[in-house]
């Protein structure tokens, strides 16, 4: 048995849940549980930490990313890429994340897949004021009609005031933890992505999961949420 190359910040907590596991980008991931279909419409909470992720910041970061064909015009907005998404965090910091379809679970864990993130990470950081940012996030997805109820209990920000068509991204705090929130909709139901520092992972996960369960939801698998 080989040691996994990466572990989710909430790996231990996830292991207590019965379900199907698979290796994504060298990280063991809970991809499916038997409850997924039942829970997803109400409030499903899934760990997406295994997706490839890349951060870059600095006054030269925008021009640097433009070379790779990535631009986000305004601060605190996101844009869809061919193989993932790009978020502009404030004025001069960016987060790029691969989508799951662009990563394969069949690739041996000791070789890097050819994705947007791996191409960026192998880039040249010599230009002035371009600095790579280490991303070790807990990345979550929340899906279902009860997502706004969960956000109301955990966050001060009024998401109802946003226009989703503008692709907004909100940098705020939830239950005392600094987070990046990307609110959107999927199949007519609220679909929120949340990133926070992995060191807060267990606290953040347990608190959100307890609230989700009170609201009739629970954990769902990574592929269940991405390919319903």
């Amino acid at each position: 048995m080989s040691t996994p190359r990466r572990l989710s910040p909430i790996h231990e907590s996830l292991q207590q849940i019965e379900g199907t596991w698979s290796d994504i980008n060298g990280m063991p991931a809970l991809i499916h549980t038997s409850e997924d279909a039942r829970i997803a419409k109400t409030l499903g909470i899934a760990d997406l930490s295994s997706l490839g992720r890349f951060g870059v910041k600095g006054a030269g970061a925008a021009a640097w990313l433009a070379h790779y064909g990535i631009t986000v015009e305004q601060p605190n907005r996101w844009t869809r890429l061919a193989g993932g998404l790009a978020i502009r965090l404030g004025l001069s910091e960016y987060l790029i994340e691969d989508s799951l379809s662009n990563t394969s679970s069949n690739i041996p864990s000791n070789t890097l897949p050819n994705t947007m993130v791996s191409r960026l990470a192998a880039g040249n950081f010599d230009p002035d004021q371009v600095y790579p940012v280490l991303r070790q996030d807990l990345a979550l997805a929340l899906w279902g009609e009860q997502v706004p109820a969960l956000m109301l209990q955990t966050c001060n920000f009024n998401f109802r005031a946003l226009t989703l068509a503008e692709n907004p991204v909100v940098l705020t705090t939830m239950i005392g933890v600094a987070v990046t929130v990307l609110p959107s909709e999927r199949n007519g139901l609220p679909f929120y992505r949340i990133w926070c520092d992995g060191t807060f992972g267990n606290y953040f996960w347990h608190t959100l999961l307890a609230i989700a369960q009170e609201l009739g939801g629970g954990v769902i698998g990574t592929t269940s949420i991405l390919f319903p």
Partner: peptide, 17 residues
């Protein structure tokens, strides 16, 4: 709760600052 306006992120509760 008291609020403050961040020039980039807009109006937020003071505990975010």
């Amino acid at each position: 709760m008291k609020q403050m306006i961040c020039p980039i992120n807009g109006t937020r509760p003071i505990v975010e600052f």
